[in-house]
């Protein structure tokens, strides 16, 4: 099972909130926990902010965001944030905690550290004058929660995949429907699909 979305936004700071909300809404289809969703939104915000304040520092360019969700036993959300800005001269140094090129602007220098800590994988490629690409992924462990649901409800493990696919099967007579679960803060609809 695979789902994806693509987004292009101008590098304006007011789009930081839009970008993380859009990715959060996409990720919410996989029914992440509140903490998983917060981690994803924070990491996207960091990557987009980097493109705005560093990549396109003195100009406005385009930020390209791609998200892909793959579901097997676990669900993996893969997010790519790409700009065509000035690039990072030394990626390794830029990824050191507390490193910042703008200390007088009160930058914390924690952007990449946050992405590394909150996501499972992080890959940064950059070329001077050509831009930067940040790829990151996080596993949403549907399998574990399916087992918990199976134990509690007696419903088959495939129910969660049906949820991800947006299938709305009606329970047969005498069958129990999925229990109400604590919804994450960004949902597309009442059923999250």
């Amino acid at each position: 099972m695979r789902n994806y979305m693509k987004l292009e936004i101008p590098s304006k700071s007011l789009n930081e909130a839009f970008a993380r909300a859009a990715v959060g809404a996409f990720a919410a289809q996989t029914d992440p926990t509140v903490e998983e969703l917060a981690d994803i939104k924070t990491s996207v915000s960091e990557a987009v902010t980097n493109s705005i304040i560093h990549g396109y520092r003195d100009t406005v360019g385009v930020i390209y965001i791609e998200c892909e969700a793959r579901v097997e036993n676990t669900c993996v959300i893969e997010i790519t944030v790409r700009d065509e800005g000035v690039g990072i001269p030394d990626v390794e140094r830029a990824m050191e905690p507390l490193f910042t090129t703008a200390p007088d602007e009160e930058r914390s220098g924690m952007g990449f550290t946050v992405m590394q800590s909150f996501m499972d994988t992080l890959d940064v490629t950059s070329e001077k004058g050509k831009g930067t690409t940040v790829k990151m992924s996080k596993a949403i462990n549907i399998g574990t929660r399916d087992e918990e649901l199976e134990t509690r409800t007696g419903l088959p493990k495939s129910a969660s995949e049906a949820h991800f696919l947006g299938k709305r099967s009606q329970p047969e007579a005498g069958e129990t429907s999925l229990p109400a679960r604590k919804r994450t803060s960004v949902g597309i609809g009442d059923d999250g699909c």
Partner: peptide, 14 residues
């Protein structure tokens, strides 16, 4: 505060 990223950390550190 329902959301904060490292820009908030910069604000607090400052």
């Amino acid at each position: 505060v329902d959301f904060m990223d490292s820009s908030g950390l910069g604000l607090i550190m400052g």
